[in-house]
Amino acid sequence: MDARLRRVNKEITDCKNDKTSQIKIDLFDESPFHLKGSFPGPEGTPYEGGLFEVDIVIPESYPFQPVKMKFITKVYHPNVSSASGAICLDILKDAWSPVLTLKSTLISLQSLLCSPEPNDPQDAEVAKHYMTSKASFEDTATYWTHIYAGGPGAKEKKDKAAGKVTDDEVAIAGLERAHVDRFETLGFQRGKVIDALRRLNYRGPNVTQISDDRVVEELLK
């Protein structure tokens, strides 16, 4: 068995034997080098109660090259792409060290959920939302945890019927229904309104800063 395989083997064993860290590592498919990690969202954060799954790929030169990780579960967080799950975390890049492990890296991801770094964002729109109104951001992040990570209150699975725009999408975009309604009554399609307001970061104190003309201009783009 080569060194990489031995190390991955030991790491998985270590995780299995460790009940206190709440980190879980499973085989994804047949390969020992494509794994699925998961951990519960940290208490006292919008991610509390959710279970977050991570796609793990172990490169050939592991542990000398960093492990590749991205969120499978959709996460609303400044350092995680809301679309792809890509993660902006230094230890996954040039701050990697071969003494770091799958478990310690997953714990670092868990910690990242506790302490967003909006100044070094992966998702610029989410970061703007966070900086404009933390309360509104947390509402949206909590909502995402409910519908995507199985957090408490996830009664209604979102309706994915094609073309059907529901209020869920307003919440997913982190907007207020009243604002969306107002521009919709001007004759714009609801989905377009949501997109435009999200791009403009039409939230919190920004609402008074952004003129209706500016919104209409964005809608006509």
Binding site: N17, T20, S21, D90, L100, S104, I107, S108, S115, E117
Partner: peptide, 25 residues
Amino acid sequence: IDQSSSLDAFGASVAGPSRHAHVLS
């Protein structure tokens, strides 16, 4: 499964909750 094994092999200790590297020895 026993809890003290969390300190074994590679799990000796883990990075603190920071997005920045805490390499541990």
